[in-house]
Amino acid sequence: MWNEIRGLREGVDYGTPPRQGQPVTLTVDGVEVTVPEGSSVMLAAVEAGRAVPKLCATDMLESFGSCRVCLVEVEGRRGFPASCTLMVAPGMEVRTQSERLTQLRKGVMELYLSDFPEAEIADGWSEFHRTLDDIGIKTHGYGTGRVHFDLPVDDSNPYFLFDPAKCIVCSRCVRACEEVQGTFALTIQGRGFDSKVAASQDDPFMQSECVSCGACIQACPSHALVEKSLFSGGYERA
């Protein structure tokens, strides 16, 4: 697969890894695009210049389908499939923008925002923050409720820290540790709302199986896993 990645354009995240296969032609928002069979609709949309917002997808990792902001509409199909896990098909007609899609995407982002530190929404520059801008939402209507802000920051590693308050549980770090690094040091602990990224047996990163390769930080879209060097005066929660 890496041979194909080489063909990818610098700085562009296609959302899902490239595939090899027979060419398949489809339209995305009316733009005709041809991609190899087995490619995701998300990748085709990027090729067509109609990139879909996304959070849990990145072309370094296999598609996962958890964030639900990359939903699209497909002519002749019910519902709103996630473009990252939807494979292209010949003649498929995909719509990436509609009022309904915007409504749903805003709805999903609202849920993220309802468990994200409010003070850190405005001046961030992570992928998560960019996605908020793309979708055009900065607030939520859920009021107060259960949040993950009380979970302690893990700053045991000399180079990076993990702030669960900013974690959006997309599992990109877990998947990067597995797929890219091959160490399997991370997992999601618990389930449902209690789901939390954990190193080994919920150990501090330094005492876990983590080999500190940085793949998880590279993968993290929300600066929940972040280099300490980016904070000149140490890390303090807002």
């Binding site: 389908g65 709805g107 999903v108 389930r191 449902g192």
Partner: peptide, 8 residues
Amino acid sequence: GKCTPCRV
């Protein structure tokens, strides 16, 4: 806990 609509 995988997808956000259900998890949150």
